[in-house]
């Protein structure tokens, strides 16, 4: 496959970010908010792609790492009065540290046991907030990025500011991830996923690589969790079990083998409820349908993807291109 050089990729990322900012100037508040959600979801999906698509490990509870990141960032802001950029760094470090610990356990667990452990983590974690008062209970903690700088003018809304921050941070993180996956580490992980035994025979330290993948994935998830906390709240209700499932759904819809696909997955997750809304209006606005149609469509899409294009549309397209090239 044709790969961009790092310099060209950097230019592409910058141009893409620029376009997003220009577009954000011309749409309404709701769209800007959705844009920020898409950016943040892209990053959390990327963390799963890194883990599952590249190192072949499963996590059914990645929402827990989003929560670690969000709470770490919020605590750093509340108790240390840290500047915003520093809280993001704290989010990454703390979440990565927990990922490192769980990664060690994960190395010894095979498929369903790992799935069970991560699932139990995601279920268990949010309720801890009620146990320790410094975590703020059900109402959670205050975490925000501050007001937009005055020089951006009166017109510059808070949501636009969130959008700018989210897009900026996510683009940088995605760029770094892209380089990481194209580096030695990325190739090592791919070899692990394809055939652990062969990789081990070639001198790859399987356990170490897996822990590494888990750690980085958790760090990325933590960052996206902090951003999610910024646009919503940092409270147990922001990190339900369904969040973990949503991220996996996005990753599968996107095709877990392509980092670029993570954006596609995020767009689908945000756009589907909109489409569902239109359809349920057609169907006469029954409340039962309105609330359940988005979930229905996404779940059906998930099943169809797994059945007919299990490695995602991106992978399917790549295969088709390769076949074309052969003939």
């Amino acid at each position: 496959m044709h790969k961009l050089s790092t310099k060209k990729a950097l230019i592409a990322f910058v141009i893409f970010g620029w376009i997003l900012v220009i577009v954000a100037d011309r749409v309404d508040e709701l769209r800007v908010y959705q844009g920020a959600t898409i950016a943040i979801t892209t990053l959390s999906i990327a963390s799963i792609i890194l883990l599952t698509g590249y190192s072949g490990q499963v996590s059914l509870g990645h929402g827990a790492f989003l929560a670690f990141g969000a709470y770490a960032a919020a605590l750093a802001q509340t108790y240390w009065q840290s500047p915003f950029w520093f809280t993001l760094l704290v989010a990454v470090m703390v979440s990565a540290a927990f990922g490192f610990i769980l990664g060690f356990a994960a190395g010894r667990l095979s498929g369903p046991y790992l799935a069970g452990t991560t699932l139990a983590l995601a279920v268990g974690l949010p309720t801890l907030a009620n146990q320790f008062s410094f975590l703020g209970g059900e109402t959670g903690l205050v975490y925000d990025a501050g007001l937009p700088p005055a020089r951006f003018g009166e017109e510059f809304t808070l949501y636009k500011w969130f959008f700018w921050i989210a897009v900026f941070v996510v683009l940088i993180a995605m760029f770094l991830l892209r380089n990481l996956l194209n580096s030695r580490f990325g190739r090592t992980w791919k070899s692990l996923r394809a055939n652990p035994t062969a990789a081990a025979l070639c001198g790859v330290n399987v356990a170490q690589s897996k822990v590494m993948a888990f750690t980085i994935s958790a760090g990325v998830a933590g960052l996206s969790g902090a951003l999610l906390g910024m646009i919503s709240i940092v409270a147990p209700s922001a990190f339900p079990l369904s969040l973990s499932f949503t991220i996996i759904t996005g990753a599968i819809l996107a095709g877990v083998t392509s980092l670029l696909g993570s954006m596609l997955g995020a767009v689908v997750l945000v756009v589907i409820p909109e489409i569902a809304d239109v359809i349920s209006h057609q169907l006469g606005d029954s409340e039962k349908v309105v609330t359940n149609l988005p979930g229905f469509i996404i779940s059906v899409l998930l099943i169809l993807t797994v059945l007919f294009s299990p490695n995602g549309p991106a992978e399917a397209m790549r295969k088709r291109r390769e076949q074309h090239a052969k003939h």
């Binding site: 998930l302 099943i303 992978e315």
Partner: peptide, 23 residues
């Protein structure tokens, strides 16, 4: 085949859970 093969059944049942629940 593919990286998802081992994961596919679990994902499919998660999807089914979503479908059943929304219905």
């Amino acid at each position: 085949e593919g990286p998802v093969a081992a994961l596919a059944p679990v994902i499919a049942t998660l999807g089914l859970l979503g479908v059943i629940r929304s219905i």
